[in-house]
């Protein structure tokens, strides 16, 4: 049921952008729930560009000190994360920001990101201008693809309470 509601919310959000004639559409936005101690988080989404080439210049989010675009590369088993100053969004394509690739890094979180809540995010494009999107916060377990059986998906919540070793 929650998945359906979530889907409807997404469809509604997508439709809202399409209706105003903007060639850019944001699809499947989500931010990963963060551990209580985390000062940083990550948001992911797809940018569907039905028009001409554009560029994502930056972003800001409520309750977040700084927002940066980062890309992760794997180089001989070494993970290297680098800031992306400007993200090219070619026309007629979908640019996917996903775990292990390009992500929107949320730095200096005022409070941890809790699943079920959302982050208001503003994306600043060179031509399309500012696009606002409500980014739902989800558990990584629920979003990250895996071949592992989905059983016991909810038992994870028990692990959130701090426990002394």
């Amino acid at each position: 049921m929650r998945a359906i509601l979530f889907g409807m919310l997404l469809a509604f959000a997508a439709a809202a952008f399409a209706a105003d004639g903007n060639p850019l559409r944001i699809e499947q936005p989500w931010a990963a729930e963060t551990p209580p101690a985390a000062h940083t988080g990550a948001a992911y989404l797809s940018i569907v560009n039905g028009g001409e080439a554009d560029r994502l210049l930056g972003a800001k989010a409520e309750g977040v000190g700084h927002v940066e675009l980062h890309t992760t590369t794997m180089d001989g088993g070494v993970m290297r994360m680098r800031k992306v100053e400007v993200l090219e969004v070619p026309g007629g394509t979908t640019t996917v920001l996903e775990p292990g690739g390009i992500h929107i890094m949320l730095i200096d979180l005022k409070q941890p990101l809790h699943a079920g809540q959302s982050v208001p995010l503003t994306l600043e494009f060179e031509k399309a201008g500012a696009l606002q999107v409500q980014v739902p916060i989800r558990k990584r377990e629920a979003m990250q693809p895996s071949t592992a059986p989905p059983a016991h998906e909810h038992s994870h919540g028990d692990g959130q309470k701090m426990k002394m070793e």
Binding site: A38, H39, T40, A42, M81
Partner: peptide, 8 residues
Amino acid sequence: SYCPDVCP
């Protein structure tokens, strides 16, 4: 722990 993507 400040690693937002690959470590989680």
